[in-house]
Design a protein around this nucleic acid. Structure first.
Lengths: 242, 242
DNA sequence: ATTGACTCTCACGTAACGTAATACCATATA
DNA sequence: TATATGGTATTACGTTACGTGAGAGTCAAT
């Protein structure tokens, strides 16, 4: 069989066959006197094997190993690959979920602007918040907002105390021991009084402090630049804890 | 923020940031007097947008378009991407099916070849069968063959009855309720009398019916085109059961 | 003999960075 | 103050699995 036919039957291009020949994955005798590649039935069988593994996203190098070494543990390779595929499937499912939500949001966004036109409803979203929501999730933003509002007088007092303490050291290096020790108070306070924060969520919250104008303004009431300082300290805190 | 910190927080490498700068995806001012890249909050927000799309497997070129053109139809892009992801998911499901069968084949295959050695069992393989084996696994072929041979007279009768019933409706739509109800008999018969078939294995067997000449010839003895009809009905059956 | 459809071998292009190599810069410590 | 450490920058080649011509030869049919 000539390359052309083989390619058609296998659903690949001639270039692919050339390439496989070139890298020694599927070496083929050129018997045609004119140098044409002549694929025997055996070659085609081997090609099918190759395509089988390729369809499972094996890199060609590994396929070569599999084909060359008779003691290669095919079974283990296959089981490993199955695992990878399952992970990939999960990843795709997550992406589909995300993309679905985003599409809904996008659609809802259009409705919103219609609503706005007719009801004079002003939705005070700034781009930063939108982005923050996309990246860190509505959960983080909303919980941060709402839980603060639900606080009792006592905890408000405690919170303000921490803010004041942080403000008093806001010109120091956020990475210094003092800063880190104080930001840890903030971390503990949030976990005890507000909601459970993972290290990552805590870092995300820190980023929010400079991303979201409202956070920044609120925080900076205790001292100019406090939001920036806290943000950096919180991110550093997360780094240390990992 | 310097590149290092940005990279750490964003979970990417500095090289990636350089690259994004290089291709103009995330151009950043180098204000540090030493040529250091200085990422503003806006830059970081943009990076987050970029990473959002990248996580959805958008190519960078398209991301650039999305970011540059405010009139770019984000919604359509997202829906298109969703479609692609769904196709990819299907592909992965097919690959998982194939790999699962191959693993079973491999497991059973080793035992088989040992048996073969000691029992002097010579298996007459034709290229079509080879293909079928590679594609659907020794298990399917062998079990289909051998179990049929081991069947008693009674079960043979039962099997033939189902074949005849199927042949009588083979010109109907394989997806019709009648067809599906009858093919279910076949499914139950196989599970009770031959061997346990997963839905996937059952589908694989269905494909075998048109892939493997011998199967096709055998089945078509009960009626021209029966193999084709059964194959389609079996695959449909599997789809419905998932 | 010419045409059209194939074949071959270079050899560069692609995407999204990884990986040195080389040089400059900033800070902490001896 | 010299140096070690660890950051920054640019330049440029390496990677994977081919795609895409370019230029030249080959084959079968007209």
């Amino acid at each position: 069989m000539l390359a052309n036919e083989v390619a058609k039957v296998a659903g690949i291009t001639v270039r692919t066959l050339h390439y496989y020949d070139e890298i020694g994955l599927l070496s083929v005798t050129k018997s045609n006197e004119a140098g044409y590649r002549n694929y025997t039935d055996q070659d085609i069988a081997k090609l099918q094997q190759i395509l089988f593994f390729r369809a499972l996203d094996f890199p060609l190098k590994q396929i070569k190993q599999i084909m060359e070494q008779p003691d290669y543990d095919r079974l283990k390779a296959l089981e490993w690959q199955e695992e990878l595929l399952n992970k990939e499937k999960k990843r795709i499912d997550e992406m589909l979920l995300t993309i679905h939500q985003t599409i809904e949001q996008e659609k809802a966004g259009v409705k919103m602007s219609n609503k706005e036109r007719f009801e004079g409803f002003a939705f005070d979203s700034n781009p930063h918040e939108e982005e923050a929501r996309e990246r860190w999730g509505d959960q983080a933003v909303d919980e941060a907002n709402k839980n603060v509002m639900r606080m009792t007088q006592d905890t408000q007092e405690e919170m303000n105390a921490i803010y004041r303490e942080l403000a008093s050291i806001r010109h120091k290096d956020p990475k210094s021991t003092t800063s880190q020790r104080t930001i840890e108070k903030w971390y503990r306070f949030l976990n005890e009084q507000v909601t459970t924060y993972s290290i990552e969520a805590f870092q995300g919250l820190g980023m929010l402090y400079i991303q979201d104008e409202r956070f920044q303004k609120n925080i900076d009431q205790f001292g100019e630049g406090l939001a920036q300082f806290m943000s950096e300290a919180m991110i550093e805190f997360g780094q240390n804890k990992k």
